[in-house]
Write a protein that binds this DNA or RNA. Sequence first.
RNA 1: CGGGGCGUGGCGCAGCUUGGUAGCGCGGGUGCUUUGGGAGCACUAGGUCGCAGGUUCGAAUCCUGUCGCCCCGACCA
Length: 610
Amino acid sequence: MRVSRLMLVTLRDDPAEAEIPSHKLLLRGGYMRRVASGVYAYLPLLWRVLSKISAIVRQEMDATGALETLLPALQPASLWERSGRWQGYTAGEGIMFHLVDRQERSLGLGPTHEEVITALAADLLRSYRQLPVSLYQIQTKFRDEIRPRFGLMRGREFIMKDAYSFHADEADLRLTYERMDQAYRRIFSRCGLRTVAVEADSGAIGGSASQEFMVTADAGEDLILSSADGRYAANQERACSLPEPAVPLVCATAEAVELHTPGQHSIEALCAAHGFEPSQTVKVLLLLARCALGQARVVLVSLRGDQQLNPTKLANAVSGALGESAGALLELEPITPEQIHLEGLPAWPLGCLGPHLGDEWLAGARSWQPTVLRLADATAAELEVFVCGANRPDTHLVGARWSALGGPRPIVADLRSAQPGERCLQDPAQRLESSRGIEVGHIFQLGRKYSQVLEATFTNEQGLDEPLWMGCYGIGVSRLAQAAVEQHHDQHGICWPVAIAPFEVIVVVASAQDPVQVALGERLHDELEQAGLEVLLDDRSERAGVKFKDADLIGIPWRVVVGRGAASAQVELVERASGTKCDLGAKEVVTLLREHITAARLGLTATQSS
RNA sequence: CGGGGCGUGGCGCAGCUUGGUAGCGCGGGUGCUUUGGGAGCACUAGGUCGCAGGUUCGAAUCCUGUCGCCCCGACCA
């Protein structure tokens, strides 16, 4: 391929719209253009990269025995209503693009395909004899992200590989899940990425176990907590740790004593004024949970004063406590004084709330359920004696005990956010370290969540119908491409790993005016192509410097410079990533590159942990 | 959606405070010179200053509204 025919437009300045290196480089290198917020045109060079990633994904998925398929992006609302996700995905902060057709039918553009695939499974899978089976597709997904960001990192239209597996029992699901785990490690490694596998929250997809694959990079949106030996790694929203022990509170009396605390509405203020340690206190957070079905519910969370709430863990705990009858949890936000007022309730002593806040405070509420949902983090529940709000203005209790506070006991759960520096659960001798990551893959054991609601059953060996066991497995193909740039670039531009580079070699003719150089450049290009390599020939009548700059920017792994030595058939070979150069004859260069590149194509050189 | 910022030739920006009929660098075209790390000179094309109202003799500039984009939070491959 000739660069002059490539429609290559590179930019000298960083585009104003880009913030992180990979985004800037993909725009500057002529790989893509923004069409709308979170919507990008993949230009020919990028499409080659995406195709190569897809090819690797296909090989590895095929090797697991999965079958490639292609499901519709346009999906009927009725299907999503059956799974109970239509509301959650379209109302409020839902991310599903949806529309109404000329027959007034509601449709959505697929953000994911559990519904479609499960309905198909219900139709096609009838007997345990057909199981297990896995299907996958590489397809454009649509998600109306609340905030699209960083180019391909969080687009509203993006390319994803999603796979779904179906099983007769949970043990078989685990086998495929493990196989997918291994396939994922090979895929990322072959793409030249350094990744970490971490324990993850299952989020809106649901299910039990799930694991994310993170490309380690400072620009990553996720915080990873891991042990130094790499045996434990988790997304912070999921991570667990050993909290520091609480400082015991010494009390003279067995009874709690009231303390006048004017204006001391925060743990810091309270502790500063009276010399308490935050770990001796219990703080109370009030939130309002809105679900797809039923009235809003007040949620009261008790946390040890020195701990931070983990919103993901809380949302999971609230969903679990409310049960399926409430439908999907749509919103869980702190309650404001205005909301309390609008409910027609008297003002609450916010800032002095205690875990024993009674349901009587909700009497007469206009639209809220009349009972409080009480949750407590284990660190708070374990405190024997503590300081907490007295549910009266400017008053706290010193020496409070759960037994003496009375009222309904809270549900105890892990609600705290693990922090870097805390001790690992598995090995208290190690401390959690933090790093940033870009999530490029996520695998889930869905269990029977979707098969039950969509009635996807099969007949087992005993002749009885039961719901299918399911797993699902995603890779952000377009995100992976940008993550690769984020991990492989320098001040001059991109340094693509050979396995996913748009071209493997670029032959730069230093002087397009020199017929000898042109002739040798053409010949080398042809010979390299005949050797099975993917070759660019920079035949533009630009100065050599321009071509070198562009070659560095677009990041072709190998550069062959046809210049001064052309008359004696001598060329220069430059490796992009390392910058190492050597002069050699035109014949040797073909042999050498064929060896290097055919070996590197398979990838499997990148390191991987956990 | 809340908070912050930006919309001026293809790209990056200045001009706006203090209204007076639009400029710089890069890029494009032509010519000459140059030719191994984003060349020099000359000529040239290209902009209803996001859009819509308003104020004014006069608006890129002031006011109102609106649309779009980016950044910080909730979401996720």
